[in-house]
Design a binder for these strands. Sequence first.
DNA 1: CGAAAAATCTTGACGGCGTCAAGTTATGAC
DNA 2: GTCATAACTTGACGCCGTCAAGATTTTTCG
Lengths: 212, 212
Amino acid sequence: MADDATRQRRKKYHHGDLREALLRAAERELAEKGLESFTLRGVAKRAGVSHAAPAHHFRDTNALLTALVTVAMQRFGSAMTSAMSQAGDDARARFVASGIAYVEFALENPSLFDLIFSSRRPDFDDPELTRQAATAFGSLVDGIAALIGADPMASPGGRVTVAAAWSQVHGVATLLNAGKMKFLAGDLAADRKAALRKLVSSVLPVAPTSAD
Amino acid sequence: MADDATRQRRKKYHHGDLREALLRAAERELAEKGLESFTLRGVAKRAGVSHAAPAHHFRDTNALLTALVTVAMQRFGSAMTSAMSQAGDDARARFVASGIAYVEFALENPSLFDLIFSSRRPDFDDPELTRQAATAFGSLVDGIAALIGADPMASPGGRVTVAAAWSQVHGVATLLNAGKMKFLAGDLAADRKAALRKLVSSVLPVAPTSAD
DNA sequence: CGAAAAATCTTGACGGCGTCAAGTTATGAC
DNA sequence: GTCATAACTTGACGCCGTCAAGATTTTTCG
């Protein structure tokens, strides 16, 4: 907004930092219109440039979305690791906290979450995106490793445990986000953290240390 | 195909059963191109009619998708209830069977499953669709009711149990479908049913009756 | 310093999309 | 058998992503 206005005033031909401006505009476009109605021309308009300007910074629409999902993935991973570090030393509490952060990120950034798991629009072979995704997934695996005292990916049972824990959290995030769990609205309003904790922790590979 | 060819030969102006032909064409279009690339003009072409013909049977694209998702939801529910009835009398075995059917429907009909949970394209206020969805959801709730001997929707804890079980199964289906669990490929290939059973049953509100 | 090269952005065009309006053809009611 | 109506086609509109060509600015380098 401020950038666009500035650009209008100065009537500059060159933008100066169009690539970053396009990323910011794309995030607004995505948040306001959703992944379904996301439009490259809309992004260009938000950034105050012509409809063909983005081509000089991103090969096509999917390349722009790939760049956007990369920063989204980074934030997503950071939200989880920061929640873990705020949860103290107990492995179980840390793991539950990261799961809650997973769900809350999805609820606070529904379109970015959609994009992360859309599996169609962005290019998931992009090396930088792959790196960010591996980092985020790694914290999940590490959390389970701390719980069971071994590398879960090394055994079939461990892999299934990882899959089950991830699925549990992801299912909660997805179904809440899609509005398919309106019957929980009251319970979430009453004690949101407790309800999320119950939903997230029900699949953990070790017993609770306290009541949850 | 056969219908289109017949129509070509006879050069009929009126189709005769275009509404149903469009639904069949739409299912093929969806299966082949996915929800992202689904096109009303493509459906019309598959049915062998002009691009504007569908308008006389469906108000717009979303209305067609609403009709399609309604029959998909019906099949989805049927897959689960039929799996339950084949599983015998044990409440737990029946519930696990329905969960496995949930996941397998998603894997066998990825685009229909996408459509069911897309939450954007179809009109989920449509009364017939609402009815089919309630039926499918009802079998989930009934399965849990049989397990705990009470109506789970009547208590906060019961509702959370329903949400947790649904989330677990839905997360597995979604992540497998999105190709995010390639690390499980070997385990699924080795003993698919066992792996799915483990994934699906880990969140049940009562202990297993035998090893799974 | 200044001209050539490169990078950046605009304008215009193309085909494909969903949808609307108007015209054409078949069906069915009377 | 006529005629209203339903079913379908044709053509148009604006929006989309992308490509090509031209305009403008910046950078390189002789």
